[in-house]
Design a protein around this nucleic acid. Sequence first.
DNA 1: CTTGAAACCGGGCGTCT
DNA 2: AGACGCCCGGTTTCAAG
Lengths: 157, 157
Amino acid sequence: MPSENGLIDATNLRLLAELVEDARISQAELGRRVGLSAPAVAERLARLEREGAIVGYRTDVSPAALGYTLAAVVRMRPAPRQIPKVADVARATPEVVECHRVTGEDCFYMKIHVRSVEHLEEVIDRFTPYGQTTTSIIQSSPVPRRGIELGPQRELA
Amino acid sequence: MPSENGLIDATNLRLLAELVEDARISQAELGRRVGLSAPAVAERLARLEREGAIVGYRTDVSPAALGYTLAAVVRMRPAPRQIPKVADVARATPEVVECHRVTGEDCFYMKIHVRSVEHLEEVIDRFTPYGQTTTSIIQSSPVPRRGIELGPQRELA
DNA sequence: CTTGAAACCGGGCGTCT
DNA sequence: AGACGCCCGGTTTCAAG
């Protein structure tokens, strides 16, 4: 993961800013917006992908439209020696949409999407054998999800 | 947000599954994969967007490539009457990439990306005037981020 | 189905090392 | 010289009426 070559110049920053908002913009349109020819855009994108700056292009699907009307944050304090097991269960549980290993008393934070409170219980019970869980139901999301700040880059050393 | 019409049939589920993995697939290619003509795909996509099942097409940019090498989960217990203020600060702070209002003792969960521990302190200090924060540094992400389960739909009522 | 536009490929030019 | 980034032509493929 290179953090410093000529990869992130002002032009690539503008390309990324456009693509973060709409991943389906054509390369020609991107070129128009940043003042570049289409092939030049293609080349820059290929490099950004190759170097790992662009991780992927994803479609955001509404959980509610699929019947997942309930979301929760679960944090977890695993029992001794059960840390790898918890990570395995999280990976194997599709309702877990995010899982982070963190410092502090609780070792994991997870975000889950479920269809009902019964479904929630069912998912939580997959983890209770391996430690102590704390569950908080998501009521609203003041910041639902967004990308990193792409505009004013501070010192890039 | 309609949860039940003919919107989510087996074909649309397959389209969504393809688009979640790569939002830049052409409509012709999508048609090839699900056994549909290109115009039919276009029509279905338009409807999925119109009905809100497709929220958007986003590009995933690596925080590390932009110099944001540190991530943390911050949970917060606001002081009395400061709940709206906390939400405002979260929205106005670009380092906050997710913020959820939840049930329980702590009222907010946030995920933030920063450049350094000094930067982390700077961001946290924007919230400390309004309540008590608990910060956990993300060490790794067993499940970095993924979409909802699209394959085996259980009961759709 | 047809048309206009877009993506891919190869070649050639200017610049900075 | 060499390497790199860009532009310009070609052809194939895609998207909208």
